[in-house]
Amino acid sequence: MAQSAKENHVVFLISTGALAWLVPGGGHFILGEKRRAVIIFVAIVLTFLVGVYVGSVGVIDPVHARPWYFAQMMNSPLVMILGRVGATGNYRVYGRAGEIGQIYTSIAGLLNLLCVVNAIYMAHLRSVEKTEA
């Protein structure tokens, strides 16, 4: 019984983290923190889109800008699709616009990583409180 509860707890944490990674704010949404989820979603998606608009979709480049790509991937696994488009589409990236685009998209990814960790921590606290009550 205790083993099963522990397994359920781990599955809950993993699914919360996965959802938070898939959609920014998704982890908080399933925890019932809807306002928090909306704020996180709007802020992260807007930052990411501004970055892609400023620098072009070519800023997501898994070949020539690999370290940046790992940070950008933290936004969502869907960024991999954009990465494929950026790598094969020969989109121009240059100058200050390219730098700003990379910084915006990467910071958005790192902010989402913070939110993923926070959602997992909140899920852990919730289930610990539930088992204690």
């Binding site: 892609v52 608009y53 400023v54 620098g55 072009s56 070519g58 100058g95 200050r96 390219g98």
Partner: peptide, 11 residues
């Protein structure tokens, strides 16, 4: 299309 061309930003 507007997401495929970088903006012009000076240094």
């Amino acid at each position: 299309g507007s997401f495929t061309i970088p903006m012009r930003i000076g240094t």
